[in-house]
Design a protein around this nucleic acid. Structure first.
Lengths: 168, 168
DNA sequence: TGAATATATCTTGATGTCAAGATAAATGGA
DNA sequence: TCCATTTATCTTGACATCAAGATATATTCA
């Protein structure tokens, strides 16, 4: 009987007309996400990073040489708004982790690139990050992990197609 | 091959020394959460609510008569800081959805209670909210739902106990 | 070629959140 | 009784985010 179960029990008492079966899974996703975020932040802080800055640097790093993308490409990967990305890039530039140069082939755009310092920082951080994620999932067996991944993948695919069919 | 798969593929190419198996599940939890939030907000907006205000009103509603709790109790249920709760209560009070009175039995504390308007609003909103959650999970069968819930529950319990054993 | 439209990014203003510290009241001994 | 500590809540200041609008450049097609 965890906190989510207690919430469901309260609703069943107060609103027996509602079927709150789905609320458990959805509630657990939310709680899990915030626990996972907190666990992630502990590693990020060691490198003076936030989830926001890690996200951008990691996207540049895994894109491969020359470790450079446009703000628009970064927006696509990270799924934030353009205003948020501008703010993230401002901070990273100030910290000397990225450079921001006009795109010579498109005067509207910029090229965001990792500096050497940025490359080294994210490379070290991601190593520890991955080890940390291993720990977070220690409680589940390989089989359970695979099962969970399958279910989440299916659900996510359905959510995405529901969202897309909305604006048609 | 969804976006998460593409991210893993990039890491495997760029950092073959890392085992990124766990990153898939964790990434999907995050993406799912933001899709679910967005889907929730669509209903909340119809009632001029945000996730933040819905959260507080729903906690009061499901606590049962007299639909009143202290800020501390609300903080426990919603897992936000005291500063965040003060801010949420300020807005809800201004909107006439709750009242905030000194606790006659403890001069340090307050009693937060639903107004009639607040009660009616949250009761209508939660009805639609639950129907909305049904839709979000349409893609999974009852069996899959149960399986998913079991895995999430196990994982969450492990994360919680890991967190608690830290501060000991 | 020029005007209309589309695209890339930045700016602005409002919200929501947290951490740390302030304030006031309650409680627990000496 | 009275001081030290604890508890409940609010305040402050810094961030991060989004939506909407501004700006500048590119593209399209009449």
């Amino acid at each position: 009987m965890d906190k989510v179960d207690r919430i469901l029990a309260q609703w069943r008492r107060e609103r027996p007309d509602l079927d709150v079966t789905q609320m458990g899974v959805i509630g657990r996703i939310g709680r899990l996400r915030s626990q996972l975020s907190a666990a992630h932040e502990r590693v990020f802080k060691k490198y003076d990073l936030s989830l926001a800055s890690f996200d951008v640097l990691a996207t540049l790093r895994r894109s491969g040489p020359p470790y450079a993308l446009s703000p628009s490409e970064l927006i696509d990967w990270t799924m934030v708004t353009s205003g948020t990305m501008t703010n993230r890039l401002d901070r990273l530039e100030k910290a000397g982790l990225i450079t921001r140069q006009r795109n010579p082939e498109d005067g509207r755009g910029f090229v965001i690139a990792l500096t050497d310092k940025g490359f080294e920082l994210i490379d070290a951080a991601v190593t520890e990050h991955v080890a940390n994620q291993h720990q977070m999932l220690e409680a589940l067996s390989a089989k359970e992990l695979e099962q969970l991944d399958g279910l989440l993948r299916k659900w996510l695919a359905a959510m995405n197609s529901a969202e897309n069919s909305e604006n048609s």
